[in-house]
Simulated assay, not measured.
Amino acid sequence: MRITQGTFSFLPELTDEQILKQLEYCLEHGWAVGVEYTDDPHPRNTYWEMFGMPMFDLQDPAGILLEIKNCRSTFPNHYIRVTAFDSTHGTESVVLTFIVNRPKDEPGFRLVRAEGPGRTMRYGLESYAVQSRPEGARY
C-alpha cells in the first residue's frame, strides 16, 4: 500500500533534482522549510518528529537538501517529509508538504468496523506499523 499524503503523493518518487526545484520554489516565496519523519503515517498523525530545527533563515536549497539526506541516512526506514511554512499572516501556516522518503515495505492500514446501537456502524483505520506481524501475515 502506498501512503498518499501531501502534495505529489500520487506521482512517482521525486528525484533529488525535483526536490531541489520544489525547495527553490518555497524559498522564492519566503517560506520556512522543515524536515520531519515518522514510522506511523496514520492520517490523523499530523505531528511528525522534527529533524533539526525549521530553516527560517536558510536561503540555499542545497542546504535543505543536505538536511534531507542526513535525515534519510539517520532514518532510512521511516517516512520523511518536507513541510513549508508561511508566516506572512502572523502565524505559521503550513502551505506545502511532500514526502521525500518511504520505507522499502510500506505497512499500510486496515479498516476496523464496530457495530453500534441499532444498525449503526462505525469505521476507523488501524495502522499495521503498530503490529509486529510481517506483510502477508496480517489478516
Rank of each mutant, 00 (worst) to 15 (best):
Y37L: 08
Y37R: 05
Y37C: 07
T38N: 08
R44E: 15
R44I: 04
R44G: 08
R44T: 09
R44N: 10
N45A: 09
N45G: 03
Y47H: 14
Y47E: 15
Y47C: 09
W48T: 06
W48H: 04
W48M: 02
E49W: 13
E49V: 13
F51C: 01
F51E: 07
F51Q: 02
F51T: 00
G52M: 07
G52W: 11
G52F: 10
G52K: 10
P54D: 08
P54C: 09
M55K: 02
M55I: 05
M55S: 03
F56K: 14
F56L: 14
F56N: 11
D57F: 11
D57R: 13
L58S: 11
Q59W: 11
Q59K: 15
Q59L: 06
P61I: 01
P61W: 04
P61A: 06
G63C: 10
G63N: 08
G63Q: 13
L66K: 11
E67N: 11
E67H: 09
N70A: 13
C71I: 01
R72G: 05
R72S: 01
R72M: 06
S73K: 14
S73L: 14
T74A: 15
T74V: 05
T74M: 14
T74K: 10
T74L: 14
F75D: 00
P76H: 01
N77V: 13
N77R: 08
N77K: 12
Y79A: 01
Y79I: 00
I80T: 09
R81E: 00
R81P: 05
R81N: 03
V82S: 03
T83W: 01
T83I: 15
F85S: 10
F85L: 06
F85M: 10
D86R: 07
S87C: 06
T88F: 12
T88C: 03
T88W: 09
T88V: 02
H89S: 14
H89G: 09
H89V: 11
H89R: 14
H89Q: 09
H89A: 12
G90M: 08
G90E: 08
T91I: 12
T91N: 06
T91P: 01
E92H: 13
S93A: 05
V94G: 00
V94L: 02
V95G: 07
V95E: 15
V95Y: 12
L96D: 10
L96K: 15
T97R: 08
T97M: 10
F98V: 04
F98C: 07
I99M: 12
V100L: 11
N101I: 05
R102F: 12
R102H: 13
R102Q: 13
P103D: 06
K104R: 07
D105W: 04
E106C: 03
E106F: 01
P107S: 15
P107G: 12
P107D: 13
G108F: 03
G108R: 07
G108C: 04
F109I: 14
F109D: 12
